[in-house]
Design a protein around this nucleic acid. Structure first.
Length: 547
RNA sequence: GCGGGUGUAGCUCAGUGGCUAGAGCGUCACGUUGCCAACGUGAAUGUCGUCGGUUCGAAUCCGAUCACCCGCUCCA
């Protein structure tokens, strides 16, 4: 056996250990747990809420409130302004029709139990056919060749050869699957047996609700599936009220909702989640430089908060994968422990969206598939979803130029960032106990800015006036930081408890304190202790957190 | 959505039809304790995920359901 191993830097334990610690220490709980839980919803506990707030505060301060709008940041084409916004979760339903979310998310689907394939209910056609005394409704995906496909499939189903094609007795015309009520005699588009299709189910990724007393379609509204649209529809308001010139970024942090089919992997894919989004409006000619700037800036943000570059990648979307109108889309991805080796999960997407969104809200829903992005027309030749008709273009007072701004969208998931920081922080190492024997230590190595508790205050022992002094220090520090007081158990045990919570600093009042007004401050990662003056504690902690 | 697995104390788990359901860790109290999971004494903690069925008797067998994990599918 090998006893020399004392430390496993960067050791990634399995997800179960992290989930277990999160529950035990109060980072994350399953929503509605005492009623059996609810799939895709998670609650943040006492430590979790501090961690998540710190993540959001760090983002807001670094991107918005602390932004230096006087200088040209490294890699940026010019100085730029940043503003914040907080929109409602329920917005005018037309917003989701013009944004494309309504059409995309609003389908009835049928599943095939045999082949596990899923089809849009209204895009499967079929026809009754009879042979060998049996009758079946044979189907095919709606297309120009659907009759040929159906014939082939009918022959195969009845076990007939091509020369017996005349044995097939067709009954009626080709009709849509939506006209069939009972699927018992339906042969699915790829199935060998009949009756394998499920009932059509509404496949709506937007949560539906009703505004006002009307519960019919008139009052139908949706919980936002993203925060971005609130920024687009307020673009003019922000511009007019702040007197900013472009380039201008508008930021928002808020809840979004998607009725995911398969929520999985702890909080990674939740149905209720929080986004941190920026819509950055700029001149079309400079947009690609800004796209590059935001990719680099956002990747650096995760690095600066302690995410190792080994676990973080920037993945450029292929042209097929990116939206048609986007001239650049990249994901910042993290090697979550629940992903397979070499695979990554998305933390944030940075998309060059051109003028697609602003134009959609001006003119009406654009056809993503059209080369020049024309307004999508309905059967009556009018716009399928009518836009606001408001002019959302920008006029540059200096050059006199008028244009529809292009948009760079760095869109981050707050809960995914929290999860990545949790996974990144989790480490198991070995530290000696009082007898010098190596003991396993579970420690959350959060960046001090993100740590839920910044410092813990202990009396070395519960006597000789040490608790009184420690409590005084605790109450003083509490004015500036989230701190924690503990006098229970041995001091070694209290250190370990704080290691699990990720507290970077532990302050201990000992026998020397009453003589010279000093205490020790112990570092979570190195276990090193410095003796410092009580008066200087607050500034020392602040300096260490900031650096 | 489909298939497989799991569900017992705060956490990790034992308990294959029969007495009042257990262990380790954790938690709490008292004492002791002088810097990295100490020790002693004592205590609390469970509708055995939920609902129903079989049975004289169910944590245990059966069915349904909910949740989590794995694989497929999906993924703005």
């Amino acid at each position: 056996m090998l006893f020399q191993i004392t430390h496993y830097p960067g050791t990634k334990m399995d997800m179960d250990s992290i989930v277990s610690l999160c529950k035990r220490r109060g980072f994350l709980f399953q929503s509605s747990e005492i009623y059996g839980g609810l799939q895709g919803f998670w609650d943040y506990g006492p430590l979790g809420v501090e961690l998540k707030r710190n993540v959001k505060d760090a983002w807001w301060r670094d991107m918005v409130s602390g932004h230096d709008d006087m200088s040209t940041l490294a890699g940026a084409p010019s100085p730029y302004a940043m503003e914040g916004l907080d929109c409602t979760i329920i917005m005018h339903p037309q917003i989701w029709k013009c944004s494309g979310h309504y059409d995309l998310f609003h389908d009835y689907m049928v599943d095939c139990r045999e082949t596990k394939k899923r089809y849009r209910h209204d895009q499967v056609n079929g026809r009754w056919v009879e042979a060998k005394g049996k009758k079946v409704f044979v189907t095919a995906p709606a297309s120009d060749e659907e009759q040929e496909v159906m014939t082939k499939r009918a022959l195969k189903f009845f076990g007939l050869r091509n020369k017996n094609i005349d044995d097939l007795k067709w009954d009626g015309d080709v009709v849509c699957l939506t006209t069939i009520e009972d699927f018992g005699e339906v042969l699915g588009p790829d199935a060998k047996e009949k009756g394998t299709l499920t009932e059509p189910r509404e496949f709506n990724l937007m949560f539906k609700t009703f505004v006002g007393a009307l519960s019919g379609e008139e009052g139908a509204a949706y919980l936002r599936p993203e925060t971005a649209q609130g920024i687009f529809v307020n673009f003019k308001n922000v511009l007019d009220s702040t007197r900013h010139r472009l380039p201008l970024g508008i930021a928002q942090i808020g809840k979004s909702f998607r009725n995911e089919i398969t929520p999985r992997n702890f909080t990674f894919r939740s149905r209720e989640f929080e986004q941190m989004e920026i819509e950055f409006f700029c001149h079309p000619d400079e947009s690609h430089k800004w796209y590059q700037f935001w990719r680099d800036r956002r990747l650096k943000w995760y690095h600066d908060l302690g995410v190792s570059s080994d676990n973080l990648i920037m993945r450029e979307h292929s042209p097929e994968e990116a939206a048609h109108y986007s001239t650049g889309t990249a994901d910042i991805e993290y090697a979550f422990p629940f992903m397979a080796e070499g695979e990554y999960g998305e933390l944030e997407g940075i998309a060059h969206r051109g003028n697609f969104d602003l134009r959609s809200h001006m003119e009406g829903k654009l056809d993503e598939k059209s080369d020049t992005l024309e307004v999508q027309l309905g059967d009556d030749g009018k716009p399928k979803w009518k836009g606001s008709g408001k002019d959302l273009s920008y006029r540059d007072d200096l050059s006199g130029e008028k244009y529809i701004p292009h948009v760079i969208e760095p869109s981050a998931g707050a809960d995914r960032a929290v999860l990545a920081f949790l996974c990144e922080a989790y480490e198991v190492d070995e530290q000696p106990d009082e007898k010098g024997k190596m003991q396993k230590r579970e420690v959350m190595k959060f960046h001090p800015r993100l740590a839920p508790i910044k410092a813990a205050v202990f009396p070395l022992v519960k006597k000789d006036g040490m608790p009184e002094v420690a409590k005084e220090i605790y109450l003083t520090l509490k004015k500036d930081f989230k701190v924690f007081y503990d006098e229970k158990g041995s001091v070694g045990k209290r250190y370990r408890r704080q290691d699990e919570a990720g507290t970077p600093y532990c302050i201990t009042v000992d026998g020397q304190t009453s003589e010279d007004q000093t205490v020790t401050i112990r570092d979570r990662d190195t276990l090193a202790q410095d003796r410092v003056k009580i008066d200087e504690l607050a500034s020392i902690i602040r300096n260490r957190i900031e650096s």
